[in-house]
Structure formats: structure tokens, C-alpha cells
Design a protein around this nucleic acid. Structure first.
Length: 298
DNA sequence: GCGTCCAGGTCTACC
DNA sequence: GGTAGACCTGGACGC
């Protein structure tokens, strides 16, 4: 199967793939030799499809799969890919704002700003919890384990991201020891059970009309999701009003603007305050600007 | 190889 | 509202 997905004029495939660490976490993987992003998807009807996404032209993405799919499955693949690459989102206002600042004009020229996300908010939430209080290598271990031990295997030996029900059927001990999530296990389990039972509808957040502050409170109320995680989940929903500062961001900010001298988070927040509702995105792109000149930032 | 220390966000208890 | 300590793991370091 081959299909083409049209993209907006300012779309940049690689800057989206390398926008943050998600493309290095299963079921995403980067194929450097083929210049493509791999992803194993679970379709609406339970069928598993491993796809390879690459930039076909300036105007379109090419999605290839070894399997044949029916028209409805094809629609679902397109829907999921469009959502991961944020193709629906309108960045006109953001680019207009970026053009006003000399140091951020590169953003508009580069077509940067789209942050890669998972097909579901649930997957983004679990991944974000797994980035807290640990090294990136441990995050990779936890996510690999979740996919390999609880996901569904595809024909080409890849795994899907597990469903809320798959995770919620496990014991806390299993998630703690086998997934290696440690003390995060009860948080992962509670979130999965609440989503599986329908007590928490994380997917509605992407289309919510709630003011961002209220949405932040709701996301923050999930156990294991603190200020850093809630702010970064918001960014993947399309709200950039919070910074989501972690130790890497602090260190990078100190090096960029303070000659390595440590400053309070409030100083960082004041620095990006002029960027209003886009400050979280300016903050992230500012700190990762040096990635954008590199072929492979990870 | 083993033990110790530290970094990394979030939660809870306490002031 | 602010702060201390616990949570758990991997990595660095010293022995």
C-alpha cells in the first residue's frame, strides 16, 4: 500500500520528526538510511499496520506499508498520521509572531514549530510520565518494555503501543519490575484504569474549549503528572501557555543566557513572558535551536 | 565486582 | 504557599 498525504506550505517533515525525543521512542523509530519515520499503528478495527512515512515532495508525505488495506483502514492511517504530524494545526499566527523578533525569524524560514505527537493523548501521557525523574535511556527502556510486553506484535516483529486496557490488566508489581517503571507504576496503572473504565477521557482534551489554565489543572490532577509533565502535554494538545521546565531546559537556558550561572525558574518564566500564549513553543524552539542545524540531533 | 553518592520530577506530610 | 523527605533507577566514582 502506498498513499500520499498533502501538507501545508510551511510544513517541514524532518523538523517535526526531530522536534523532540518522541521519534526515538517506540512504536516510532527513525530509519536514517531510508530517511523515514517508522510507526506501528493499531487501526480502528484492531488490525495492525506498520508504516513508513517519508517526505515525497515539498507538498506531500508518502506513507508505505507492506500490507494491503481497505478504504476505511486507509482513512484511519491518514487520520493518525495527520494527527501525529499536526497537519490540521494552523501556525499562521505563531509565524507572524516569530517574524516580529529578529532572533526568531529562523523559525518561520525553517518551518519549525510542529511537535511530533502520538496518535492518542493517552500514549503521550504515559510517555511523559516515563520521562520524569530519570535519564532518557531509562525512558527508552520503560517504553520499549511497555510495547514489547503489552503491545501487539505486527507481522514484521514490531509492536504497537499498548492500549489502556492492556496496561490496566497488569499488576503494579509487573509494571514496577518488568516494565522497570519503579515508583511510577501506580501512576501508570491508575491512569490506564481510569481511561479504560471511561472515568477519564484524555482524548477530548485535543478538542476541548476549556481555557488553558483549566485544562492545565485537569491534566495536573492526574497522579504522576506535575507541572513539567502537564505543561508538555499541553504543548502536544496545541496549547503553549506554559513552559514545562526540566533540568535539561534549565541547564541549556543558563548556558545560553547566563554564562552557565544558575537562576530561579521565575527568571526563565519572565524571559519568555512577552511571547504570551506562544511562550511555551518559543521557549522550546529557542533551547533546541542548535538541533535544527544538525542532520541527527539525537 | 561492590558500595556509595547523585541526578532526575512528583507526591505527601508538615510547618 | 513553601519546604523536606521519600520514591526508584542508572551512571559515575572510589575502593
Amino acid at each position: 500500500m502506498k498513499l500520499t498525504i498533502l501538507v501545508p506550505a510551511n510544513f517541514n517533515f524532518w523538523r517535526t520528526v526531530y522536534s523532540h525525543g518522541w521519534s526515538a521512542l517506540k512504536p516510532f523509530s527513525i530509519d536514517r538510511s531510508e530517511h523515514a519515520l517508522h510507526r506501528t499503528l493499531e487501526l480502528y478495527n484492531g488490525r495492525i499496520s506498520s508504516i513508513i512515512i517519508s517526505q515525497k515532495s515539498i507538498e506531500s508525505l508518502l506513507v508505505v506499508s507492506g500490507q494491503s488495506v481497505n478504504p476505511e483502514e486507509r482513512k484511519d492511517i491518514i487520520r493518525q498520521v495527520r494527527s501525529c504530524f499536526r497537519i490540521e494545526e494552523d501556525y499562521t499566527e505563531f509565524y507572524r509572531e516569530a517574524r516580529k523578533h529578529r532572533k526568531f525569524r529562523w523559525i518561520t524560514r525553517a518551518g519549525a514549530g510542529r511537535l511530533l505527537r502520538a496518535p492518542t493523548v493517552f500514549e503521550d501521557m504515559i510517555k511523559m510520565i516515563c520521562t520524569t525523574n530519570c535519564s532518557w535511556s531509562l525512558t527508552e527502556v520503560m517504553i520499549n518494555n511497555l510495547c514489547q510486553k503489552l503491545g501487539i506484535r505486527s507481522g514484521d516483529n514490531q509492536y504497537t503501543f499498548p492500549t489502556p486496557s492492556a496496561i490496566s490488566s497488569c499488576s503494579e508489581k509487573f509494571i514496577r519490575k518488568e516494565i522497570r517503571a519503579g515508583y511510577r507504576a501506580p501512576y501508570i496503572l491508575e491512569l490506564s484504569r481510569d481511561v479504560a473504565d471511561g472515568k477519564l477521557d484524555t482524548e477530548k482534551w485535543r478538542s476541548s474549549d476549556l481555557p488553558t489554565a483549566d485544562l492545565y489543572k485537569e491534566i495536573h490532577s492526574v497522579k504522576g503528572v506535575g507541572p513539567y509533565a502537564a505543561a508538555n502535554i499541553l504543548k502536544l494538545i496545541g496549547r503553549y501557555d506554559y513552559l514545562g521546565i526540566d533540568s535539561w531546559c534549565r541547564k541549556t537556558f543558563f548556558e545560553l543566557y547566563k554564562n552557565g550561572r544558575k537562576v530561579n525558574d521565575k527568571v526563565i518564566e519572565r524571559f519568555y513572558e512577552p511571547f504570551g500564549k506562544w511562550k511555551g513553543l518559543f521557549f522550546w524552539l529557542d533551547l533546541t535551536k542548535h538541533w535544527h542545524g544538525k542532520k541527527d540531533p539525537f
